[in-house]
Design a protein around this nucleic acid. Structure first.
Lengths: 372, 372
DNA sequence: GTGAAAGCGCTAACAT
DNA sequence: ATGTTAGCGCTTTCAC
């Protein structure tokens, strides 16, 4: 019918009221300012004309774009799709849309995307890329732009955030290996600019101490990025050091995340070493399809989709004027035992896959827990 | 400095020109309308004030939002992250951002997202969800909204589109199995509402005919969605029919995509059947990490990232007034031979993984080819 | 409860 | 080459 989309004026004309009145009648927050009767008339006119409010005009007037910027390292990391879906689903339910930006762990790219999104007047940011001392965070705070951190935290400023309890997860990984009888355990640490790398390393040391195991510093390597390639590189280094003496004859590797663990698989493929017969490997994240690898990876799981929805929730609270205390939300990790970990003693008997109970640790709750 | 962000009026005032002149000076497309000197003065003033144009105001005026709607079935399908990255990278380079929508193959959800994005005044759509007879397409066409189809095509209307040559890919899959010596080949077809499902089924029949093989209709099952669950369900059906007679004693399954193939793995796990010893499986897509499954999946690859960039390119051309002929772009498929396919005869000798040459088919070019 | 008037920040006619 | 004018569609004072 109408080639030119109906505007508020058209609706007002059809309902024989002033545009301002039509606006009030249509907006849920101001409907109570107009009489029942006119509200109904306006609604009817709007329906008949197929009126759709123009969000651009509204944004210009209200200075709220109903868009949020979401900065992640790389959508190709299988960890992120479910998180992003959680985020988008929750935001969509509140009438918001997400502008996605992949930083590729490049500070310049990150800064550029941040600027571009600010220019587009996003109402807030969800950042999964924050490094520990992030200038952009200070900037966003100064501009009073709501920011929620996801997956990683910041030390300098206290921002609302959602993440898994990384230390606890790393401790659970070490405990699992220790229970199997491993004593010399290597660690492939994540980037130390990110809180996940730091926390998981700390959890690793902590877990080792709890089990009266010594951390051999030669058996702690540092990945510069969370990629399969970096994992393979670090694993090769570890394997090289393994020759160097009894102290270095580790039997298991705790990787700071699943990508690094997959890198270990790749490194093993270059040798005659078999997992878990010769070496056990444990990851972190339980990313999609990791249970179908050869062997299925033992890892530490957290609820990805929910991480996204909770982050969205926190951001929406801030956007909607929430001036309350800053919430730091931790989701409980859960140990998922699969075929990549086995007892080091049973080198010959270990050819069948390890038992696979899911969830393995009954003490790991599914529900999120607010710490502090 | 300025707590209230600088506006064009501020810049104009600082440069002692009229706002309209400042606008012309700052806009690359109209800069030639002002003198060198004032252009420089305005630029300097803008820089000094840290001026950032307000895209919302601009959109309201120009009726172009520099956003595009992207409808995909589900971001959790590993096929899509690389495609989306290609899309977003290309769009970002042109100053556009993507609004992502997951339809979950639900027509209602799809419609809702479509409406919401239209309400947000997107400048165009990239749709990876088009079913063959899609009402929304007609609607978009009627509204003269640029639309590009990605991965799937539409029969009714002729829209610009980018996809892999599905028939050719399916033929290559069948040819590979035939070369290995398989004669009774089952097919798990994709949803027949989608062009991929139809084309790959047609390619399957075609390939069988080319190799003088008979298609047993009992060995063609139809998945209602491209999911692991549907794949497992279809595979179970096939396995049940397999008992029913010699004609049905198939030795290989060609699945319409990798998710369905993974479903076959899952179904095998419920039996004593081993892949590829007892049954060969071939997929379609070569999605990320599929090469790390047990066994690594033989499949048909196409360049995912490039699919996204080409789709973005086509859409940008349409948005920028391209009234030229509709382009239908096909990317060439490539056979990737891995461990899930083996010769049916060598049932006992086939315990070691099959040779894995990548790329296997030297005739499969990397570069995209425009057919017709 | 409703109308009037103004303006968010920008750009496109039209004038000069 | 630059200034003038007007308006994109909406919301929000302020009157009445």
């Amino acid at each position: 019918m109408a080639d030119r989309p109906a505007t508020l004026r058209d609706v007002a004309a059809a309902a024989r009221v002033h545009p301002a009145t039509a606006s009030r009648a249509l907006n849920p927050e101001t409907r109570l300012l107009v009489s029942e009767d006119t509200a109904r008339r306006v609604a009817a006119a709007a329906a008949k004309l197929g009126y759709r409010p123009n969000p651009v005009a509204r944004s210009l007037r209200t200075r709220r774009s109903h868009t949020v910027g979401v900065l992640i390292p790389d959508l190709n990391n299988p960890l992120f799709p479910p998180i992003v879906r959680g985020l988008e689903d929750k935001l969509a339910a509140a009438g918001y849309v997400a502008l996605l930006g992949n930083t590729d762990a490049d500070a310049n790219r990150e800064r550029m995307l941040f600027e571009q999104m600010r220019a587009r007047h996003v109402d807030g940011f969800v950042m999964a890329t924050a490094t520990l001392h992030d200038r952009m965070l200070a900037e966003a705070a100064a501009a009073e732009l709501p920011v929620v951190l996801m997956n990683r935290l910041s030390q300098d400023y206290s921002f609302p955030s959602v993440s898994v309890d990384n230390e606890q997860g790393a401790r659970m990984a070490v405990a699992h290996l220790a229970r199997l009888g491993h004593a010399r355990i290597a660690h492939i640490a994540g980037p130390q600019e990110a809180s996940t790398g730091v926390s998981r390393l700390r959890g690793f040391r902590d877990g080792m101490a709890q089990h009266r195991l010594t951390v051999n510093e030669d058996l702690v390597t540092y990945a510069s990025r969370y990629t399969v390639e970096e994992g393979a590189k670090c694993c090769r280094e570890l394997l090289a050091r393994r020759e160097s003496g009894d102290d270095a004859a580790f039997t298991a590797i705790a990787a700071a995340n699943d990508m690094l663990a997959v890198g270990c698989y790749a490194a093993f493929d270059e040798t005659t070493l078999q997992c878990p017969d010769d070496l056990s490997v444990i990851g972190f994240n339980d990313m999609p399809f990791i249970d179908r690898l050869r062997p299925p990876l033992t890892t530490v799981r957290f609820p990805h989709y929910q991480l996204g929805t909770e982050a969205a929730q926190l951001l929406l609270e801030r956007i909607n004027g929430g001036e309350g205390p800053v919430k730091i939300l931790y989701l409980a990790p859960e140990l998922i035992i699969r075929g990549s970990t086995a007892s080091p003693a049973h080198r010959d008997a270990a050819h069948e896959p390890a038992m696979s109970q899911e969830p393995a640790d009954p003490s790991a709750a599914d529900a999120p827990a607010v710490h502090t």
